Amino acid sequence: MVIKRSFGERLFDGANVIFLIMLSVVTIYPFLYVLFASLSDPAWVVQMRGLIWYPKDITLEAYKLVFANPAILTGYANTLFYVIVGTALNILMTSLGAYALSRESVMWKNPIMFLIVFTMFFNGGLIPTYLLVNNLGLLDSRWALIIPSAMSAYNLIIMRTSFQGIPVSLEESAKLDGANDFTVLFRIVLPLSMPVVAVMILFYGVGHWNSWFNALIYLRTRDLYPLQLILREILITNSTDSMMTGVGGADKMPIGETIKYATIIVATIPILLLYPFLQKYFVKGVMIGAIKG
Rank of each mutant, 00 (worst) to 15 (best):
L170F: 14
K252G: 08
L101H: 08
S105I: 10
N110A: 13
I157P: 14
F31S: 05
E172G: 04
R5Y: 15
V46M: 12
T87N: 00
I18H: 07
T221V: 01
K252N: 06
F186A: 03
T240W: 11
L20R: 08
T183A: 12
L35H: 02
L136Q: 07
L227S: 06
S105V: 08
S162K: 06
V85A: 09
F186S: 09
I291E: 03
F182N: 04
L274P: 08
G8D: 03
L185D: 13
I264Y: 03
Y225D: 04
N135D: 15
Y63D: 00
V26S: 08
I269Y: 02
T263V: 09
I230Q: 08
E104Q: 12
L227D: 06
T94F: 07
V189G: 01
L145W: 02
G249C: 02
L272N: 04
G165I: 07
I3N: 15
V283T: 15
M120A: 01
S193I: 03
T59L: 03
R232N: 13
A179S: 05
I288K: 12
I158F: 12
Q228M: 04
E61T: 14
V283H: 09
L272S: 07
L39A: 07
A68N: 15
F121E: 07
G97E: 00
K292T: 14
S162V: 10
V197I: 14
G8N: 10
P270K: 12
F7H: 13
M93L: 15
K280C: 02
I21H: 06
M194Q: 06
L101Q: 08
Y54H: 13
A290Y: 09
L80M: 15
S102I: 03
L176A: 08
T119L: 00
I291K: 11
D223C: 03
L274C: 14
I146V: 08
A43G: 04
A43V: 14
V25C: 10
D251C: 03
T161R: 13
M151L: 10
A144R: 00
I234H: 11
R187T: 01
I157C: 13
K292D: 13
G178Q: 06
L145K: 01
L32E: 08
V66G: 02
P148V: 07
L80N: 11
V247P: 02
M120P: 10
E172L: 10
L272M: 14
K284I: 11
I217P: 03
L216H: 09
V266E: 01
I18S: 14
Y261D: 07
D57F: 09
G289F: 00
I91L: 15
K284C: 04
S193R: 09
L92H: 05
K292V: 12
